[in-house]
Amino acid sequence: MTNFKTSLINELEKLYKKKKAMVAVALSLIFIVFGQIFISVLRNNFGVQGVSSSEFPLLILSIIINTLLPLFIALITIDSFSGEFSQNTMKITLTRPVSRFKLYLSKILSIFIFAFSILILCMILSIISGIIFNLNSFNFLDVSKIILSYIVTILPVMILCLIIVILTNILKSGIAVFFLSILIFIAFKALEIFFPSYSGILFTSMFGWYNLWIMDGIPLFKIFRDFMMILSYDIILFTAGYYIFDKRDF
């Protein structure tokens, strides 16, 4: 357990020191501030109602999970795996008294923590932005729904992370992994449009899973069904990724 904890701290320090992590924070802040300003301008100058301050964080969530967050996850995941493969630093890491499984798990958890941190940061910034622009539209129930929405979103988002992990362990080029990840994401989004009857089994459709949790009548069975599907995706992809990682010759 001590070796795993040390490995996880080491991976988190690597992510913290990378400029991409700081860029992700900066872009999230800029995106939220300009989004709120844009909505306020439309409301004040053009008479467009737009969204209320309590709805603004959910609007931000729906946008970032389909744009910025997948991009950030792809870049960080590629750095954690392909970056170390190309720089031959993975060999040095493996000389430490930690098993391949613990190393693999620590890398996955560090990416998970990074993605969750970005989500929480966006949630806090969007709530603060909403309070500044229109405090009266907020109540405890709205805030509870917002917090719940951001928390449960991390589970389907990790499916994309695990897919990218598999690609990084198959392909040598980080650039190839990046563009292939984008193509896969776009392809699944297109399949949702052209084959709506099968969209329920596509992992990209699960990015809107949080909507089930904030409905007036919560569909418990559908939530449980989707949770089991998300969990199945995560277990299968995690296992496949570790198998390839374990068999890889460094």
Score class of each variant (00 low, 15 high):
M1H: 05
F4W: 06
K5H: 10
T6H: 15
K14D: 05
V23D: 03
V23W: 12
I30Q: 08
Q36D: 12
I37P: 11
V48K: 13
Q49D: 15
E55L: 08
E55G: 11
E55I: 03
F56D: 01
T67V: 08
I73M: 15
T77W: 02
I78W: 07
E84G: 04
Q87L: 11
M90I: 15
L94M: 13
L94H: 04
P97K: 05
P97R: 07
S99F: 00
F101E: 02
K102Y: 11
Y104P: 00
L109V: 12
L109P: 07
S110L: 04
A115G: 10
A115C: 10
C122L: 03
M123K: 09
S126V: 07
I128S: 14
I131Y: 09
N136E: 15
L141I: 15
I146Y: 01
V152S: 10
P156F: 00
V157P: 05
C161I: 00
I163P: 08
I164K: 00
V165L: 06
G174E: 03
I175Q: 04
V177W: 01
I182K: 01
I186D: 07
L191C: 08
F194N: 11
F195S: 13
P196K: 09
S205R: 10
S205C: 00
S205I: 04
W213K: 06
L220G: 07
L220N: 10
I223A: 08
F227I: 08
L231W: 04
I235Y: 00
I236S: 05
L237N: 08
T239L: 14
A240W: 00
Y242E: 03
D246W: 03
